[in-house]
């Protein structure tokens, strides 16, 4: 059974102007998939449809559950969504309080939630952030803490919107290593194609709300013609080297 499934999904913010058009794809359990596309391609909309923040025409399923108002709580327990801006993600005073917010909403006692948060912090090497105030930590730390708040809910799948945006090279590498170390199903939307290459085995390319390509990351991210036709460029690690798979 697929972890995330889109079946003939169409979505419009304004009537007559569909952002996604009859989109069909699936992400299997344990897969790490990159979602790429130019600005306005529909990546963020796809991300929001998965946990039911938006309603679409067509069918979105998470672990076999049809996403809808009635199933939103169940779906959101299975899928954690790391937003692009950690300031939008974190709203409690300290990192620990933010981390236990989700687990306690799902019925854990405070002690259980704290134990879980401590374990995740230790796994991510962030224990020193535990009692820090959210607004007094650096951008990189905040990004890692935002990811930690989602992992504390122990989701089966994690979707991430631009996880490496505005990070310095060191913090970017830390986030990449962290993503690589996680075994959950992952769907990562990003313009950082080198990061996608590092973390994802498969890539879905969206263009104008439709599926432009779907296949192994190595193949799609080497295809200069395909990328340029969809307002993208080769990853830096491939630029200047073989841009054509046949070469």
């Amino acid at each position: 059974m697929s972890m995330i499934e889109f079946q003939n999904v169409t979505f419009s913010y304004e009537a007559g102007k569909p952002v996604l058009k009859d989109l069909t794809f699936a992400v299997e359990k344990g897969e790490s998939v990159g979602l790429i596309g130019a600005n306005g391609a529909g990546k963020s909309t796809i991300m929001k449809l998965i946990p039911g923040l938006l309603d679409s025409m067509g069918r979105v399923r998470v672990d076999g559950i049809s996403v809808g108002k009635d199933t939103a709580a169940e779906v959101r327990k299975k899928v954690g969504f790391v937003l692009q801006d950690p300031d939008s993600q974190m709203f409690m005073p300290t990192v620990l309080e933010d981390m236990i917010f989700g687990p306690m909403n799902y019925g854990l006692t405070k002690d259980e939630a704290v134990a879980k948060a401590d374990r995740i912090l230790a796994e991510m090497g962030l224990s020193d952030l535990r009692n820090r105030h959210n607004h007094r930590i650096s951008g990189g730390e905040k990004k890692m803490a935002a990811i930690a708040t989602i992992l504390a809910m122990e989701p089966e799948a994690v979707i991430m919107d631009e996880p490496t945006a505005s990070l310095d090279p060191y913090n970017r590498r830390t986030v990449i290593n962290m993503i690589r170390s996680r075994s959950e199903t992952k769907l990562i939307a990003s313009h950082d194609l080198d990061m996608i290459l590092d973390t994802c085995s498969r890539v879905i390319l969206i263009s104008g709300g439709v599926l432009a390509a779907d296949g192994p990351a190595e193949r799609i991210l080497r295809d200069r013609a395909l990328l340029e036709a969809n307002r993208m460029e080769l990853p830096l690690s491939y630029a200047g080297r073989a841009s054509d798979p046949d070469r």
Binding site: K48, P51, F101
Partner: peptide, 20 residues
């Protein structure tokens, strides 16, 4: 906009109108 994003983040982590 920002408040809407924050509220989404809360809903995504199980917030249903009452704090734990």
């Amino acid at each position: 906009d920002r408040a809407g994003e924050l509220y989404s983040a809360m809903r995504l982590r199980g917030f249903r109108g009452e704090f734990y």
